[in-house]
């Protein structure tokens, strides 16, 4: 009995360490965003303090482009996610339902592309994107971000679609459904867990991505992480409170999103591990 309690206690201790490890930085950022400048640097750190919204007020007055950045991030994240979802559903379906030498070869290249360090493609991309006049547009980041995740999402969706019995589609076909109708009415609703799991990766990546945004946008499509970087590198010296406020605003939506869909992520990532 005592041994069992010990195991449970140990388990909680380890989980506790894990939670502390990941939640502490978030706590520091969020709590500091509500602190005055003096409280932020108080040693030892203050757990009880009088919260203030001054940092947020100052953020809005000094850095109005941060809101534009958030809006751009939202547009680009949504676009990249939708594009990835559509492409990977179709590709995952093809990989799941058809067999050919071409498909096998293309699957290999899809994984190969994923092995490339993203930086390698950046330099050759630059002149191409200039020539296409896609610099500083939402479209270019949408396409780039989607391109990075299509391979992973396709793989996740293929695993899901593999588990949908072919007979369901045949039944739908006999009932008069076209390929498109089968995809929308049968495959899509039955692979929605995989879809969400795949999309989480794209959402988190697109929302936080810095390097490509830095290289390919300047003003019109500038995303929130770029503005954040500007705040921290401001010439007048870093306003830590403002920076924390901005970081909190940047963090909150993605955190809420991940919490909302976490049950999908777990089933999504373990799909195919056990035969149902």
């Amino acid at each position: 009995m005592a041994e069992r309690y010990l195991t449970i206690a140990l388990r909680f201790f380890i989980i506790g360490l894990g939670v502390l490890w990941s939640a502490f930085p978030i706590y520091m950022v969020v709590s500091s965003s509500f602190k005055t400048h003096i409280d932020i640097f108080a040693v030892p750190s203050k757990f009880l303090f009088t919260p203030t919204l001054d940092n947020y007020r100052q953020l809005l007055s000094d850095w109005p482009e941060f809101l534009d950045g958030l809006l751009n991030s939202l547009i680009i994240t949504t676009g990249a996610t939708l594009l990835t979802a559509i492409v990977s559903l179709l590709a995952g379906y093809a990989y799941s339902r058809y067999q050919s030498r071409m498909l096998t070869a293309s699957a290999f290249f899809m994984i190969l592309v994923r092995m490339l360090p993203p930086l390698v493609v950046t330099i050759p991309l630059f002149p191409i994107i200039n020539w296409l006049e896609l610099n500083d547009t939402h479209a270019i980041l949408i396409v780039l971000y989607a391109a990075f995740f299509v391979s992973l999402s396709t793989w996740i969706l293929k695993t899901f679609i593999d588990q949908i019995p072919r007979e369901l589609e045949e039944a739908a076909e006999v009932e008069g459904a076209s390929l498109m109708q089968r995809l929308i009415k049968i495959i899509l609703p039955l692979s929605v867990h995989g879809m969400v799991a795949a999309c989480v990766f794209v959402v988190v990546f697109s929302w936080n991505e810095y390097m490509f945004a830095l290289i390919f946008t300047s003003s019109a499509a500038k995303t929130a992480p770029l503005v954040l970087a500007e705040i921290s590198g401001s010439l007048e010296g870093v306003q830590w409170g403002v920076l924390f406020a901005a970081a909190t605003l940047q963090l909150a939506p993605i955190l809420i999103f991940v919490l909302l869909v976490q049950k999908y992520i777990v089933t999504g990532l373990t799909a195919g591990a056990v035969k149902g």
């Binding site: 019995p165 007979e167 369901l168 045949e170 039944a171 739908a172 006999v174 009932e175 009415k185 049968i186």
Partner: peptide
């Protein structure tokens, strides 16, 4: 045509 499958193939 209409078909009834062994596995029923209900959605």
């Amino acid at each position: 045509v209409a078909m009834v499958f062994q596995s029923y193939a209900l959605f």
